[in-house]
Design a binder for these strands. Structure first.
Lengths: 352, 352
DNA sequence: CTTTTTTGCACAATCGATGGTGCAATGACT
DNA sequence: AGTCATTGCACCATCGATTGTGCAAAAAAG
């Protein structure tokens, strides 16, 4: 209690105070003391001293010695997005419940940045790495491999390491079917009335586009290539695509599938520049859930990816150690318009 | 290139390869070699070897020795919210541009959790800590103090350490004035027509409420206490408050001020349970910006807090070292309805 | 050709914790 | 009492880097 000491206590300080050796103190404080046949009384004494002086282990020293740091990394494209930030939230909770320390970093979908960030994490001797939405998962894999770092891909699969991803094909099918059915309530839907915006040359986009096309062909009989507009993942590019369509047609498509909430932000940019009439009657599907996106002034069907389950599965794979580079699918859920799901925010302490 | 070695190279490996001593290698690789009067040629030789073998310093070892880790922490209430996640994004960019490694963690607004998380960070010898939206900044301060850890409060001020916060009073004034003026376009506004929902017993809420009340009294002549509904920060509680009002009045207030985007999620939960007519004609102000929140089917004025500037100011304070526990205000901006601001997402690499 | 200065680097202690090994003291057993 | 097993713990090398110190060799000065 009466702890005037400015510096943090070390096992050596406790060793002097207790009269025991540093290795005994260490054993007591890291729990291995039974194995080392330390007397219960000695352990108690040291424990008490440790509490009294607010001892906490220097995790850098421990990490250096044991070459395990207790750090688990999550590599994200960006934080600033509900899908990834809620993944970060789940990740953090799960890592902490395992007694480790989460390290969440973003790399802006830049392959070089990705590799460099991972190098940095490796320099801190992180124990495990979750690679979420990496542009170049296999490039990152090689970096991890070289350092002997266990890792899984989340969200976008790699070919060299185990991956856990959303079932994009099924999710896209559900979403496409939902918006078609809803649009048909307003009258017959032609193939030209249903577009897809966003996404690019990655696995998730491919699968989503495949699901979209399969359902569209089945229900509407055709899917002209022009209806697929892979604009990449930036809001600006997506906005440009909407703008281009609008220039050409004088209106938006009656209904469309937006590849992600980031692309949906592109739609917001478009909307900001056009009056309400522009989007009267449109039906939108968005592959990602956002609580405010769900309440836009037109029906927005959304797909909520189960990032919590994906992270959990990721841990299961890492725990199983050295699994084959298989891709595991996690089923997302369809969220109808005007739906406010509960989330991590509900775990906030807020007693009042 | 031909690097078959499974283990990471150390300065000792390079020391053998180069024929120089480990200390020389160390000096070369950490840049202090000029000061140590190492020959340019020797430095070159070692540099080349290091590149060839993909050497990266073990930052735990370095941290242990130098008691500086290169880690900078950011403590958040939650990730899963555009305000905090965009703060995380700015933070990360700024930390990295300073050559350090960002460590973003959340503590769920739980004072105990906050202190414990900070203890953990301290065990990793982080160099600096940004405490954002802490429930108990001064409690955290004491923990930092004891460990000699430099820190600033962001968003919610403490009395013991320097703080950088949003100018909540001014922001609330702007927002209140904006929604009043907008509402008055639809006819005269009575004091009972303007409510405030959300927030609790913290500095930010107090200031926002104060700004709200001052403007409301000035423009509408009065502000009955019943118009202030501090529901705390949970969506569920906020939804309950809307529900209660609706029960009592058969409608929502004509216009209201929502204390944060988390509370705005509470409004979404309410909306999900009620038809469109329920919110016909309402005008909303929300203290926080969310790109989708800005496009809800009724006018939503938002306040965008400048988290980037707040982080930058935080670094300036830390760099100035040992500043007095002064509170610095950063002015937020008013965002009119249907506005899509650009953000960190626009920095995403997305060439296509 | 000495003496002094400068250059270039090696040595060794150190940061705090871990874990293999060894040894004295105690108790059990014949 | 003598042998052996067990208990309880101390010693010490080690993880990989940093840094103060010291000392040859080379260069400059005299």
């Amino acid at each position: 209690m009466a702890d005037i000491s400015k510096k943090k206590a070390t096992i050596y300080d406790l060793s002097i105070l207790s009269g025991a050796s540093a290795s005994t103190v260490s054993a007591v404080l890291n729990g291995s003391w039974r194995k080392r046949r330390i007397k219960e009384a000695t352990a108690q004494l040291i424990q008490n001293l440790a509490n009294e002086h607010g001892y906490t282990a220097n995790l850098q020293a421990r990490g250096l010695r044991s070459s395990r740091s207790g750090l688990v990394g999550l590599l994200l494209p960006v934080h600033d997005n509900r899908y990834f930030s809620s993944m970060a939230q789940s990740f953090e909770a799960q890592v902490r419940s395992r007694g480790q320390c989460p390290l969440v970093v973003s790399a802006c979908r830049d392959p070089d940045e990705e590799r460099q960030v991972v190098e940095t994490l490796i320099s801190y001797s992180i124990d495990e790495l979750f690679i979420a939405g990496a542009t170049d998962p296999d490039g990152v894999h090689k970096v991890c491999e070289k350092a002997g770092l266990k890792h899984v891909n989340i969200d976008l699969p790699g070919t060299l390491a185990p991956s856990v991803i959303s079932d994009n094909y099924e999710g896209a099918r559900m979403l496409t079917q939902a918006i078609i059915e809803r649009a048909q309530e307003d009258g017959p839907l032609l193939p030209d009335d249903l577009y897809l915006f966003g996404g690019r040359n990655d696995h998730a986009s491919h699968e989503r586009i495949r699901g979209f096309r399969d359902v569209k062909r089945a229900l509407l009989g055709a899917d002209p290539d022009v209806c697929i507009q892979p604009t990449g993942y930036s809001p600006a590019m997506t906005a440009r695509a909407f703008e281009a369509f609008y220039e050409g047609h004088g209106k938006l498509p009656r209904t469309f599938f937006v590849n992600s909430s980031i692309n949906l932000e592109g739609l917001m940019r478009f909307l900001a520049l056009h009056p309400h009439e522009t989007f009267a009657g449109i039906i939108v599907g968005c592959y990602d859930y956002d609580p405010f996106g769900s309440f836009l002034p037109f029906p927005v069907f959304m797909v909520r990816q189960d990032s919590e389950a994906m992270i959990a599965k990721g841990f299961a794979i890492l725990d199983a150690d050295r699994g084959p580079p298989i891709t595991h699918l996690v089923r997302p859920t369809l969220v109808p318009p005007r739906t406010a799901l509960t989330g991590p925010l509900d775990a906030l302490k807020d007693i009042e």
